[in-house]
Design a protein around this nucleic acid. Structure first.
Lengths: 205, 205, 205, 205
DNA sequence: CAGTAATCGAGACGGTACGTCCCGTCTTTAT
DNA sequence: ATAAAGACGGGACGTACCGTCTCGATTACTG
């Protein structure tokens, strides 16, 4: 093989093997189809064949990219938009703002029903856990940012255990959403936040 | 209530329709087999046929009682022993005691891996939710008892929102167990309890 | 205990053991139900449970009398009326008369569809053959009578092989009915009879 | 016929749609397995799963080709070799030759026990009749050839009703084989043929 | 007239085949 | 090499039916 072109040019181009390159369009269509199906119907009735048909792709094209159905679903799910951190002036207001955004997300596809399925699969499937866990970590970031700002503002003690605080915040939400269907409205959340912030030694509770 | 009527015993006699009654023995064997299989291997590899074979029963007998595999699994899971309420002298000690019992349960079959699957299935399956939710409610009872005793002892304010407290307690556990694997040991739990009890206005935090 | 009745009376009564006697009404109802179901729908969809339900009987009552579904069906089928031998003056006329009766039977339930099923089962099931074969023999009787009368009349040679003749007569009918759907009408039959009777050396062909 | 066109071979190339073509090997193996099982044991004990396992195929592959077990069996049965037409010099000799071949077929798998089952199923199942009837027609061909040759030889009248003759020939065989077990040996057959050929006006009877 | 015993309707039981469904892989032709 | 199409082996699902069994309730004969 003769490669006489300067290395720079080669570095710029994407390194590509022989043969037809993978179609970005298909990939996009597949993920969109998977999302749509997850939104439409219950998880168990999502079929790789259905995804393929809806995306006008073929099963091979799917399996060439994602080793199992779960990997595909996880990536589709990961397309969910993240929460935006905005400054509402106080810790309580910031947290309620995040919760408000979260509630809005819940009422639009891809439905929240995916989450428990992923959690279930993750429990037995270490490979999935390896993908899923960092993803959950990323979701915690906005909350962490809000808490850190509160420390800077002096609303929270310097030594506050942030991870514990985040776990407590998410725990209640997760429980009421998936385990024991419960009140997730803003007033109920405000009540809980009052308790938690006082417990954390926040100023003014 | 005083039941002094002598006819009571006869009245208790279960009214039974015609036909051969369902076999209590089979039912028991099936549930035991399901539990055992859930303990042995991962959920997805549990097969109704395997359960039937192990219980020396037939698939018909299983499907006569439980409309789907999930319903069977839920009931098998429900056979888990409940937590025992004991008086350890203080609210903190009582809660830690419950948590200790809980941790012990986790390390024995039927494994805790069933729970996320049930939760996942519940999310799409309303019929299952109808069975699952009361079951979860029952699991809250020990915690409620402990909190009520604390109120009587004067450790917690009279107006404490018990359901909120229970949700907060369970939420963290559920989150760290199933969503974001985290520390569930006694010291970590003690730290969280301190925060929460202080937030609830418990005496002495 | 006073048993002063003469022994004769006792002998006349059916000797019966202790216990409740079998219900003649149920038996009748079961056979009628089986016949009706065979007429209504295809054989394979006849179910012992359906028979029981329709006869307001129970499966036990059926199985107490007939060891298998096939035995029941065979007896139901055997309720078919036999052909009547009438004297139409000549061999040809007599045979056509029998055929006419036969055609009439075919168009009324219990349908003729039972026959091939019985034949099929008979092929593997010796016990069934033992019941079925004499039954088929009995069905040949009218034809034999007609042929014997023809010999007496001098229409057929004395040495005619009657069984061969009967087999030839029935063979064509059976073939056209069950194997290669063919013309079973009176004119077609008359044509065949002419050939056969001539072959047998009948007078006047 | 002279095929001198060179392009013929290419033109014969079967036009094929997209996708993996159905495996001829599997198909063959399945039919062989079905035949073998039918030969080994009684019809009712033939199981689609067993066929699949024996053919190292899967149930899906079977059901993709044949809608029900019966359709599969019919095609397996259709693999029976046909009778060979040979010239034995006279009509009687030709017919006896065919019968001799037929008797030999009966004593080798796939056993003749399949036939009555197919006939039974045909009686209720119109779809099956559509497959079965042409098949039976094809089986008549050798007999038709023999009879036509007899006409050419002048052994049979020109106007002979061939279909009637074939029905008469097959009818007796079918009856004695499946309905009223009877003598199917060559001498008995010769006796019957004598009667039938005389009836048909054959020369020399 | 009480006791015994077989039968009845009802329906659950163990067993087993059916035909459907889906997974993840493989094989074809066309780009 | 990748794409679409779709067949492949494997295996679980839930349904159906068979012939047996266990109930409580009858219905005769027996003692």
């Amino acid at each position: 093989m003769n490669k006489t072109r300067p290395a720079a040019a080669a570095a710029v181009r994407v390194r590509r093997g022989p043969g037809r390159p993978r179609s970005k369009r298909s990939e996009e269509a597949i993920l969109r189809a998977a999302s749509a199906l997850l939104a439409d119907e219950r998880y168990a009735s999502l079929t790789v064949s259905k995804v393929a048909k809806r995306a006008r792709a073929s099963k091979s094209t799917i399996y060439r990219r994602w080793p199992t159905k779960e990997h595909l679903v996880i990536e589709a799910f990961n397309r969910w938009p993240a929460l935006t951190v905005r400054d509402r002036g106080s810790l309580m207001a910031d947290l309620l703002d995040l919760h408000r955004q979260f509630l809005r997300l819940l009422h639009r596809p891809p439905s929240n029903a995916i989450m428990p399925t992923l959690v279930a699969e993750r429990a037995h499937n270490p490979a999935l856990a390896a993908v899923f866990d960092p993803l959950m970590q990323r979701r915690r970031q906005p909350m962490r940012a809000v808490l850190e700002r509160a420390i800077e503002r002096g609303e929270l003690p310097r030594h506050t255990d942030l991870e514990l605080a985040i776990d407590a915040l998410m725990g209640l939400v997760v429980l009421r959403m998936y385990f024991v269907p419960g009140n997730l409205g803003l007033p109920a959340m405000r009540e809980y936040l009052a308790v938690l912030l006082r417990g954390l030694g926040a100023r003014g509770y």
